Simulated assay, not measured.
Amino acid sequence: MDLQYEIISEDDIEYCRDLCNELMVFQKSRSCIRPELFDSMNFDTRMVPSVKSALHNYIVVVKDEDKIIGYVYSNISPKEAYSNAFATFFDLSSVNRENAGCLSQFYIKEEYRQYGVGSKLFHMSMEWLQQFDDVDDYFIYVSNGNNDALEFYKRKGFSVSHEILDGFITVLRKSR
């Protein structure tokens, strides 16, 4: 195994298409609350709009030789971006600054889990997010049924804040 971590530009997000779509299928397979909501979620409806609306984006892909086996996508966005037709992800008044940080998408092919890839990607994202002095609040959204991810983020210092959409998504939060 020859793993390489590569930061990519917004112009290259197409590299994440297949894995992002795999992530949506994975999330639906684990979901026990309203799994049908994932039917309309894919690279074009989730990642592309998020990248376009964010103030700053950070995307890292992991390759084993030439095969992309995982990625993480984090962003800095105006807090108002988290209140939309789909859901209000957190109480906007609880975020003192204008912008919030988010580890938005995180996926590693199953056969590459348990090799420290997730911890490395998480660490890279947190370092990137914490460089923005105008951001004090960081969020992660975990789909229902993805208990491994929930426990991973809790071990990394995030706390469960609340649930939205009747438990469809668990919101985790960490403040600077």
Rank of each mutant, 00 (worst) to 15 (best):
46 R>N: 12
116 G>C: 14
98 E>D: 07
138 Y>H: 13
40 S>N: 13
106 F>G: 13
85 A>E: 14
97 R>P: 01
97 R>T: 14
61 V>P: 00
132 F>T: 04
107 Y>K: 09
108 I>V: 15
126 M>P: 04
52 K>S: 04
132 F>S: 02
66 D>I: 12
101 G>R: 06
116 G>T: 15
132 F>R: 01
155 R>V: 08
134 D>Q: 11
140 I>M: 06
136 D>M: 05
111 E>N: 09
169 I>Q: 08
125 S>H: 05
102 C>K: 06
122 F>T: 08
85 A>W: 04
135 V>Y: 05
42 N>W: 09
114 Q>H: 15
149 A>M: 11
155 R>W: 00
88 T>H: 03
92 L>Q: 07
87 A>E: 14
129 L>K: 08
123 H>D: 09
149 A>Y: 14
55 L>V: 10
102 C>R: 04
119 S>A: 10
91 D>I: 03
99 N>M: 04
102 C>P: 01
91 D>T: 08
38 F>K: 00
102 C>L: 11
164 I>F: 12
147 N>Y: 12
90 F>Y: 13
117 V>C: 12
124 M>G: 00
76 I>H: 05
164 I>W: 12
84 N>D: 13
149 A>V: 07
51 V>P: 00
101 G>F: 12
62 V>P: 03
73 Y>P: 03
71 Y>W: 05
113 R>L: 14
115 Y>F: 15
68 I>M: 02
107 Y>L: 07
43 F>N: 10
119 S>P: 07
52 K>Y: 02
56 H>S: 02
124 M>F: 14
100 A>S: 14
94 S>A: 13
105 Q>C: 08
136 D>L: 12
88 T>G: 02
67 K>W: 03
165 L>R: 11
66 D>R: 05
126 M>A: 08
49 P>L: 07
64 D>P: 05
41 M>C: 13
36 E>Y: 09
65 E>K: 10
133 D>C: 06
83 S>K: 04
142 V>A: 05
147 N>I: 09
119 S>T: 15
70 G>V: 07
101 G>Q: 01
69 I>K: 00
57 N>F: 00
